[in-house]
Nucleic acid binder design. Sequence first.
DNA 1: GTACCTACTTAGCATTTCCTCC
DNA 2: GGAGGAAATGCTAAGTAGGTAC
Length: 753
Amino acid sequence: MSGDREHRESQVNCGSKGNDSHKHKDKHREHKHKDHKKDRGHERSKHNSEHKEHSEKKHKDKLKHSDGSDKHKDKEKRREDKVKLSHTDKPKKEKENGYVRHSSPGIKSEPEEDNGFHPVSKHKASKRELDDEEFDYKPKKVKTEHDKKEKKRKHEYEEEDEEEEDIKPKKTKDRSAKDGKKNKKEEEEKWKWWEEERYTDGSKWRFLEHKGPVFAPPYEPMPDKVKFFYDGKPMKLSAPAEEVATFFAKMLDHEYTTKDIFRKNFLKDWRKEMTPEEKSKITDLNKCGFSEMSSYFKAQSEARKQMTKEEKQKIKEENERILQEYGFCIMDKHKERIGNFRIEPPGLFRGRGDHPKMGMLKRRIRPQDIIINCSKDSKIPKPPTGTKWKEVRHDNKVTWLASWTENIQGSIKYIMLNPSSRIKGEKDWQKYETARRLKKCVDRIRNQYREDWKSKEMRIRQRAVALYFIDKLALRAGNEKEEGETADTVGCCSLRVEHIKLYPKMDEQEFVVEFDFLGKDSIRYYNKIPVEKRVFKNLQLFLENKQPEDDLFDRLNTSILNKHLQELMDGLTAKVFRTYNASITLQQQLKQLTCGDDSDPAKILSYNRANRAVAILCNHQRAPPKTFEKSMQNLQTKIDDKQSQLSTARKQLKSAKSDYKASHDEKSQKTVELKRKAVQRIEEQLMKLQMQATDREENKQIALGTSKLNYLDPRISVAWSKKYGIPIEKIYNKTQREKFAWAIDMAEKDFEF
DNA sequence: GTACCTACTTAGCATTTCCTCC
DNA sequence: GGAGGAAATGCTAAGTAGGTAC
């Protein structure tokens, strides 16, 4: 590996873990995080006093601006009503939830520079880019680019279309690559929706037919021999109470069941399902003995694992049958895969973080809770015998097939299509085209918000600083949330004073801002960054006369911000910056890291590192896999073995060489060649293992999948794979290839985001 | 301007399936 | 062929953002 390359790798590594300095940093973060937890724990304990006071203060403040009626009370009442209604087939209600959990230690490290995407480098506009500029996300555009290819496709498509009035089966897959031919054939059969016109009237489909959802299997009572105990004595429960008890028993080994809120909520909801006798007896969860039930489920799960091949095959076939019957719909002449055709089974709510509703009973969804959406002229799905749908509607302005209102937050859940479907793919494509449009005007927008830092108006300064953070740090917008109803998480616009600290000077750097807050899914965001002086001064201004729990940007919310963005560019919202910065970072990193002379594994490592840079930017963390240490150990053992193999092989080569030197005969010459090849082979194997180990170590706490699936324009990856001759299968698995079929088909090696 | 509702995307963890190694 | 681990897939919570009504 060249020195230059090492240098580049170390640059990328600085954002990840795996070396000592990072471990040290991690420790520091962990420590910080504990403090953070402590603080927040303290805060939580004050939640019922101070926080309540604060909420009340906030509400009072809000009311000052209101028309004088008690809006807050009305709102609360309405929310309660809605949740109640969701149990009784009435219209839906609004969102709730809320509390706070603390995630694993943050992984953000101080950025060395500007995350690599500031300012945007100028690219030569490729032909495609120019085309897109005029046209901006129009499938037809593609046709002008790849004329011949396109004509051929169009022709093929028309032929198909004529011969079928009909449904083009979407192939079910073969996981292994062994069936290359078959896969090729399947590819050819796949419908290329991206070569067709889109609807321009806001409708999502013309024809939609499906079989409705699959309901959770009915409750099967426990065998009599499996006892529930109360206060040490066996107790027979009524079926409804027993069912809810099994939900708890199934989670007995999970940390959730040790949490007070979870236990409290569970007991409260469980008691609602009990008979009066049970209710009067079961008052203390600590006296409940679920262990026999729990062992029963473990044994069942073990038995499932031990099933014979034939039994397993039978189950597989049955699942396949259900998939074929319910897992597809017909949308506009095409058979499309449904994403989630099974209704969520009843169970206990597992909110993330310190969610105030964790442990509540998620009730069983029945046909009378379901709204079906399909076309008038389709075969309306039949509800199970003796039941009725809540409603059947024919709304082609939406993409969902069925919906219901869940009882925890009162929000609506949907059954929708798979990411490989036309309807999802088009939207995805459009998303990246919007991000590419941002690329063309991002300099102007950046100049504008820098100007706005100087504005006389506080609201404009706040807007400009928030936008700077969204752009520079890829923060989420930060919608307002119902206080006390969900975990206490924030995004940019909802940051509070307590979430940032300002340091005029820190470790040789001036104007450093330290961020420490819980974001989506209660994942901690921790970052220290130097900012421009004006930003720093503005932040000082925003903090003046405020309490820790006050909003940092008190003159701003996502709606104001997005309205402003809309004026700067059609279709621009805060979210687009995340997509744009993620994609542009990938493209830049790939350019910087990939070396044409590298081996394939080294190129793939570079790709993963570029992907990782994005995941770090977007703060996509994961809990280290439970088996992480062990699997690293195993890999290390393999590396050690390979190293000793290599040294043996080298010795053998050396001795073969001296044999040849002595004899100069053909046989020993051949042996030298053989041994040389063996050394070479083992060296390659060793390198591959070492790459794997580096990759895995660097990935310990970082989730690559989220950015890969949601933020990175797939055409960048496709172009890279074509340019460097890396099979796309090495970058995308089968599901991902299906989702990104449009990009794989259309992007050439010169694609520029 | 705000509250509320709806539709949709994004997210991490859990579970299942596949693959490798012995 | 079975165990164990990695990879893929499934599940569903938690976001963003637009529209409407007042």
